[in-house]
Design a protein around this nucleic acid. Structure first.
Lengths: 158, 158
DNA sequence: CCCTTATACTCATTAAATAAGTAATCAAGC
DNA sequence: GCTTGATTACTTATTTAATGAGTATAAGGG
């Protein structure tokens, strides 16, 4: 796909735009960076009377980086809203197994984190600011965990 | 306070560092920006054999901007984790009324947002990616709302 | 015929964040 | 007594992300 077309997909067609919005100029910059890093190869498709299209294709390195990325859960809660939901977007387009494994891996990470949070919360003065922050985090992680579980239940499982 | 001291407070003493971490160089940059915008006034305190301290004081404009900021709820959920929790940090140092009003205002905004989310969720194909994203958001907002309510109940409220 | 919209990409600028440095003092250790 | 390392206080350079605006051309609509 060339940059222009890709941008159209991202702003119109795709559901991905719900979680990941990018301006045109930023996308172009991103594409050249991805090429520099060897994830994309680019060929020019000249047209008469229009600027030539840069057709970008995933290199083998690019494809395997993508595959790896989309199987890896995110380490921190703050990456969930954007990055993890993007992973889910792509994982759903692969087989259901990929999605299931992603969800389970993420659940596992959050289970551990939740336990840690609960632990430190217990050590804190319940009237302190710290306690209030930890209490908030516990709530957020719990919400993410129930969402993960519900999604696993809904999806036409493996 | 001068920049160095402020940075020490932010990395050691304060509970604020739980939600808001800043590198030294970034803090200095921020302070000069705040001065440029008229929120801080700066005086030099020369010492022998040490670089002079820049003592920063809130201008009236700065103080009132702070007051306004800390009474204003955040418009979007993604600003909650960092910005809203910071507001709570400062609001707790004022009288309890300020905190209570902040919490209530935020609750009000999220109530409306939740209703909107529920509405659009109903119109969506439940197997679509969009539905899944909205479902997630509903969960997050609900978690924030219960946290807000619990905090209101706990604080020695007016 | 003029004005808008679509096509396709570029460039300049601002803003945010990190890393790394400076240069002097003081305390402690071998 | 000489080095090592921590403390004080602020600077500078570099990278990265993000925004905004701009270019040039052609097709389509009133």
């Amino acid at each position: 796909m060339h940059g222009y077309e890709l941008h159209q997909h991202l702003t119109e067609t795709t559901g991905l735009r719900l979680v990941w919005r990018i301006k045109q100029s930023q996308l172009y910059a991103l594409l050249t960076r991805l090429e520099e890093r060897g994830y994309l190869s680019t060929t020019l498709e000249t047209q008469e009377a229009r600027p030539p299209r840069k057709i970008h294709t995933l290199t083998p390195a690019g494809r395997s980086a993508l595959e790896a990325w989309l199987r890896t859960p995110v380490p921190r809660g703050r990456d969930f809203r954007l990055e993890f939901l993007a992973k889910v977007y792509f994982a759903r387009q692969q087989d259901q197994t990929t999605l299931h494994e992603l969800l389970t891996a993420q659940e596992c990470i959050f289970d551990k984190w939740l336990a840690e949070l609960q632990n430190t919360l217990d050590t804190l003065d319940p009237t302190s600011y710290e306690a209030l922050v930890y209490h908030f985090r516990v709530g957020q992680v719990q919400a993410m965990l129930t969402w993960l579980k519900e999604l696993k239940a809904i999806e036409p499982g493996k």
